[in-house]
């Protein structure tokens, strides 16, 4: 009897603690979104709903430029990383060779090195070989950062791919190339989408690598926001940040639906 009361008490405390912590996790995000729609901005009490901050934010050239740069970087690094990662995943899943385990660790290595050092190393090295300060510099940094994720996700989706689908295509008269394009790639589509999206969103939100590699002409959105809020602190920045959050949430929901967030993320933490 007393035992069950105690149990209930413990359970209730655990629930309360967890919800308090979940609140702690989401309060800052909620506050930002709230401010971005509040017509009195930071001032309380709230004065009503407005889209004014968004209008103002997206009429500012530095943010538009930031979005452009970040989109280019996100799309570019997602495409490049997947193009490089796919043959590696194919080799890891379908071939046995010496040094396979080593290769696996090697392609994950960007996750093992602190971003501070990757940023510094790329900055120093690319400047040294005369590649400093352009779009390519940023793109290289972002590709390095997202390659491990692409390899992880593509390897996972290749390893659950049923090889008999390819055999059936071959039996139906398809050449290897035909079976690859008509069967293998379409069946792996969701894996590719998940991989592309996660690469994109990591690049889209990156701060640590970008701040080392950005130049005044090529400034990704997060760096643009950072330099803005250093000097000017207004509801307009809340609107920009909220826009970024909305895109991230959209991506998270899509990734979660098609591939499972925990599966993708924890595989990388498994290292």
């Amino acid at each position: 009897m007393t035992n069950s009361i105690r149990q209930t008490f413990y359970r209730a405390s655990l629930n309360t603690l967890t919800y308090a912590l979940l609140f702690f996790l989401f309060f800052p995000i909620a506050v930002t979104i709230f401010v971005s729609f509040n017509s009195s901005g930071f001032l309380l009490p709230p004065q009503g709903f407005t889209l004014e901050w968004y209008e103002r934010a997206w009429s500012m050239t530095q943010f538009r430029r930031g979005v452009f740069v970040s989109l280019m970087l996100g799309i570019g690094s997602a495409l490049l990383a997947n193009a490089l990662a796919f043959p590696i995943s194919l080799a890891l899943v379908r071939h046995n060779f010496r040094g396979k385990a080593a290769l696996n660790v090697f392609v994950m290595s960007p996750l093992l090195v602190p971003t501070t050092i990757i940023g510094l190393a790329l900055y120093v090295f690319l400047m040294n070989i005369g590649l400093g300060g352009g779009f390519v510099t940023l793109l290289i940094g972002h590709v390095m950062m997202v390659i491990p994720f692409a390899v992880r996700i593509l390897t996972a989706s290749l390893s659950i791919f049923d090889r008999s689908l390819e055999e059936a295509a071959r039996n139906a008269g398809a050449s290897l190339i035909r079976s690859f394009f008509s069967i293998t790639l379409p069946v792996l589509k969701t894996g590719f989408i998940a991989s592309m999206m996660i690469c994109f969103i990591i690049s889209w939100n990156d701060f640590a690598i970008s701040i080392f590699l950005a130049s005044s002409k090529w400034t990704p959105l997060p760096i643009q926001i950072y330099s803005h809020i250093q000097f000017q602190y207004d509801a307009v920045s809340a609107a920009v940040v909220s826009s970024v959050i909305f895109l991230s949430i959209f991506a998270i929901v899509v990734i979660d639906r098609i591939a499972g967030l925990q599966k993708i993320l924890s595989q990388n933490a498994g290292n």
Binding site: L25, P28, I29, V31, S237, V241, I252
Partner: peptide, 17 residues
Amino acid sequence: TLVLAPLLIGLVSLVFG
């Protein structure tokens, strides 16, 4: 999803809040 989501929301966005 709620707990893991902040991993994919950018640092700058979280800091701003």
